[in-house]
Amino acid sequence: MSAHLTATTLSAPLAERLACEPLREAGEVALFWLGQAGFVLEAAGQRLLIDPYLSDSLAAKYAGSPTPHQRMMPIPVAPEAIGRVDAVLLTHRHTDHMDADTLQPLARRFRRLRFVAPAAEGAEALRRADIEPGRLLAVDAGERHDILPGIAIGVARAAHETLERDAEGCHRFLGFAVEAEGVTVFHSGDTVPFPGQAEEVAAFRPDIALLPVNGRSPALAAAGIAGNLDAAEAAELCRAAGIPAMLAHHYGMFAFNSAEPAAIDAVAATAAPLGMERARTGLEYRLRTAPRLG
């Protein structure tokens, strides 16, 4: 099977859409981009958040520094305004992916909310979300977990910009393959290319990939800021892993570490047969299963 991707413009603010029940119809997955690497994923009567950064905490942290983290896009929905959340997936500890000012309001509002994070960063995830250990599922690359009724995740390695492990050998950077409604959505986390990556990702048989495209540079590396795939590398990963569709993200948030929309669109225009699009706020993406050709 594969999935057919469509996009429709939201007729109301995202908070109003996320207050709606019921969720998607059977056999359908919905995605909403939250900016940076953040997504809402709805499927099987469940709602997941992946790497939500829904605050302005980094602007305060880096005020007056050479890399000011002023948001280029508004917060699309406040943590206090999301209708409900059943699980939050966190790929690594960087604050634009594991943000205390986003996670703690969610944890307080939804007392049964579960969090999934790298085992290598388990203690940090507990601290930032301010939750008890029983609410955290600590995972590592190579594992598969049923996290909610109708939803499972496969866990992959990521290299941001290296394949780092902790003292116990657990990977610090992860990607997640979310399986629901016969569809597999692969979120790579922050990553650059590394040997064996395409084969590892291909094993999940993703129908769509959510990949960063802000790239990397010696200047950012010298400032201690790890980079990611650029748009061409992201498209090549999809081709090598046999992924038919892609949403490009991790751009348009911080001016010093972004990618030009026109440059992303130029790669997308020549990426066929890959269906590559630049993720946009204000849209609802829907995936429905369809027979896979070939």
Rank of each mutant, 00 (worst) to 15 (best):
F110G: 12
R93M: 13
F110K: 07
Q46C: 11
H94F: 13
K61F: 15
Y53G: 00
G64H: 06
W33R: 02
P79C: 10
G45D: 03
E25P: 04
R108G: 13
I82A: 07
L90V: 11
Q70C: 15
A43L: 00
L49F: 08
P68L: 10
M73F: 08
M98G: 04
M72N: 10
T67E: 14
Y62M: 09
T67V: 15
D86G: 06
A123R: 12
D99R: 05
W33H: 13
S65Y: 03
S57Y: 09
E28M: 06
V40W: 01
A119M: 10
P105L: 05
V40E: 02
A78V: 05
D51Y: 07
L89H: 02
R93A: 15
L90T: 05
I82M: 05
S65L: 08
A123S: 12
A59V: 03
A87Q: 02
R127W: 10
L31W: 03
L54S: 01
I82P: 09
R109S: 14
G122L: 05
I50R: 01
R71F: 12
P118N: 08
D99T: 04
G35H: 02
F110L: 07
F39T: 00
A119E: 13
E25L: 06
D86P: 07
K61A: 15
V29S: 03
R127E: 05
W33C: 01
R127Y: 09
G122H: 04
R84M: 11
Q46K: 09
M72D: 10
Q70S: 14
E121L: 08
E42H: 00
A44Q: 04
H92T: 04
T67Q: 11
S65N: 09
Y62R: 12
P118E: 08
L58F: 09
G45A: 05
Y53T: 02
Y62L: 12
Y53P: 02
A63Q: 13
D96T: 13
G83F: 08
S65Q: 09
R24Y: 11
A26I: 01
L126Y: 10
R71W: 10
L106G: 09
T102F: 11
S65T: 13
V29D: 12
G122K: 02
L48A: 06
A78P: 05
L89I: 02
D99P: 07
R109A: 15
R24L: 12
S55Q: 03
P66R: 09
R93S: 15
R84G: 12
L48P: 00
L49R: 00
F115H: 01
E25T: 07
P105R: 03
H97G: 07
L49T: 04
F39L: 04
D96H: 10
A119W: 07
D51N: 14
L54H: 03
P66G: 10
H69C: 15
L103Y: 05
Q70G: 15
V116F: 04
V116A: 03
R112D: 15
Q70T: 15
Q46S: 08
G64E: 12
R84D: 13
Q46W: 06
Q36Y: 12
R114M: 12
R109Q: 14
R111A: 15
E28D: 09
A87L: 05
S55R: 00
R112V: 11
V40Y: 05
L106Y: 06
E42G: 01
R128M: 05
A60E: 14
A123L: 13
G45K: 00
H97S: 13
D99G: 05
R47W: 03
V77I: 09
S57F: 08
L103D: 06
